[in-house]
């Protein structure tokens, strides 16, 4: 059974990894468009995975994730257009900048109860967006944003077509899945679970809950910041409207719909929220209505999301006979 499941997974991954190649034959007219849709899915999937760390693992209601995405995108864009730093080199810097930004915000509000924290993060997202529109920092280009971001290059290869970006974005998504999965199975991942389940018991078991709340924010925001840089590279132009409150809501929705912390669920949720509306484009305005209704029905009948997280398994070391 297991090998059959694994075989199916391998076939699925191969099919997906060759998507831009076979799509050219399946839909010769609009293959580029569909590859671009899947690229957007990839960006949202990484964003949703990064929000998962804050929202599901540490249990902190962050409805302003687009703010960290924006900080990363703008940092990457400014480094590239003003200082000529290649965008992929600027990517880690953008991540760290977003991480520092999140830590400054999170530090004073980390003790707030869920709903209060949610309102603070909404506020932060809006303040940042308005500051960008008004060009408060003098280097973000106001409502027009920043354009002329250079195409990224990887080992001398210029990434410019959607099928090129497919491999860049989904490569980063795969790396994210790989690393986050390792984190989940570690002291760090467990600490977040303990603190979410019962912060008093976690602290009483010797876990520095403040530190881990902050680290969760820092990690989630850093990842969103790096994704922002990828987005800037893909678009070559960014403006404040790409980072509206609605973006934060969409990312939040993906995570909750997908299954609150299960990574496969997050991927599934991203496809449903980002790609499915494109498939039903012919229904035009009705599609959002249907989609909204489907969300509501689901939140009533399957509150745990499509694929809820599974309990951790441990390979137990063998011990000598039990004490008594």
């Amino acid at each position: 059974m297991m090998t059959r499941k694994r075989g199916l997974a391998v076939i699925g991954i191969i099919l997906f990894a060759t998507f831009p190649l076979w799509m050219k034959y399946v839909r010769p007219d609009d293959a580029r468009y569909w590859v671009d849709v899947i690229n957007n899915v990839g960006l949202y999937a990484i964003l949703a995975l990064s929000l998962t760390v804050i929202l599901c693992d540490a249990g902190m209601y962050n409805m302003g994730h687009a703010a960290f995405y924006a900080v990363g995108a703008y940092t990457g864009a400014i480094l590239n257009t003003q200082l000529g730093v290649p965008i992929l080199l600027a990517l880690p810097v953008a991540g760290i900048t977003a991480g520092i930004f999140s830590a400054i915000i999170a530090r004073p509000v980390i003790h707030l109860r869920g709903d209060y924290l949610l309102i603070v993060t909404v506020g932060v997202g809006e303040i940042l967006r308005i500051a960008l529109i008004n060009d408060v920092f003098g280097i973000t280009g106001g409502p027009n944003g920043i354009f002329g971001i250079a195409r990224p290059e990887l080992f001398g290869f210029k990434i410019k077509r959607p099928d090129h970006f497919f491999y860049l974005i989904w490569g980063f998504a795969a790396l994210t899945l790989f690393l986050f999965n390792r984190l989940k199975q570690s002291r760090f991942g467990r600490a977040l679970d303990y603190l979410r389940e019962d912060a008093v018991a976690a602290e009483g078991s010797g876990i520095n809950t403040d530190r881990y709340r902050l680290l969760a924010f820092l990690l989630g925001a850093t990842w969103a910041g790096m994704t922002g840089s990828l987005f800037a590279a893909k678009m070559t132009i960014i403006s404040p409207e790409s980072f509206s409150f609605w973006e934060s809501v969409v990312i939040f929705m993906i995570v909750i719909l997908g299954g609150s912390g299960n990574m496969a669920g997050v991927l599934l949720g991203t496809f449903i929220v980002i790609a499915l509306p494109e498939v039903f484009r012919d229904f035009a305005s009705a599609r959002m209505l249907i989609f909204g209704l489907a969300m509501m029905v689901m939140m009533v009948f399957r509150t745990q999301g499509l694929l809820p997280p599974k309990p951790r398994k441990f390979i137990l070391p063998k011990l000598a006979e039990e004490g008594d």
Binding site: E197, D198, R312
Partner: peptide
């Protein structure tokens, strides 16, 4: 105040942290 939804050994690992 246990972590009710987690396994017994995972509860003890909290103490190891």
């Amino acid at each position: 105040r246990l972590f009710q939804k987690m396994s017994v050994v995972e509860n003890v690992l909290a103490g190891c942290h």
